Simulated scan of single mutants.
Amino acid sequence: MIIATYRLNGEAMNSIVVTYNNGQVAPHAGLSESARAFAAASLAENTRRAYAAQWRLWTAHCQANGLTALPADTTAVANWIAQRATEGDVGGKRRKAGARGQAIATLRTALAAIGAAHQANGIVLDTGAAELRMVLKGIRREKTEKIAKAAPLRAGLLMEVIAALGDTPLEVRDAALLSLGYAFARRRSELAGLDLDRLGDGDGVLSSDAHALTVTLIRHKTQAGEPLVSTVPRDGSETAVKAIERWVALAAVKSGEPVLRRVLKGGKITTERLHPQSVTGIIQRRVAEHFMRKGVPAAVAQREAELYSGHSLRHGFCTTAAEAGASVQAIMSVTGHKSVPIVMGYTAAADRARISPHRIKGVGLTSAAKL
Rank of each mutant, 00 (worst) to 15 (best):
A252P: 06
G281H: 12
S207C: 09
G193W: 01
H290L: 05
L206R: 06
K221C: 06
R188A: 13
R198A: 14
Q284T: 11
V287N: 01
G225N: 10
F291L: 13
D209A: 04
V263A: 12
R186P: 09
R286W: 04
G193E: 12
W247Q: 06
Q277C: 09
G236C: 06
V241I: 05
L260P: 10
V287P: 00
P276Q: 11
A224D: 15
L228F: 13
S255T: 12
G267T: 01
T216M: 13
K265L: 14
E226I: 02
S189H: 04
T239V: 12
R188Y: 02
A243E: 00
G256R: 02
A251R: 11
V215E: 10
R262D: 11
T271L: 13
R286E: 15
V287S: 07
L228A: 14
G225S: 12
A224K: 14
I218F: 15
D197I: 00
P258C: 11
A288K: 09
A252K: 15
R188S: 12
G281S: 11
G193T: 03
L217Q: 13
G256K: 00
Q284P: 10
G266C: 02
R285L: 04
R273D: 13
A210L: 10
H220I: 12
I244W: 00
G256I: 04
L217R: 09
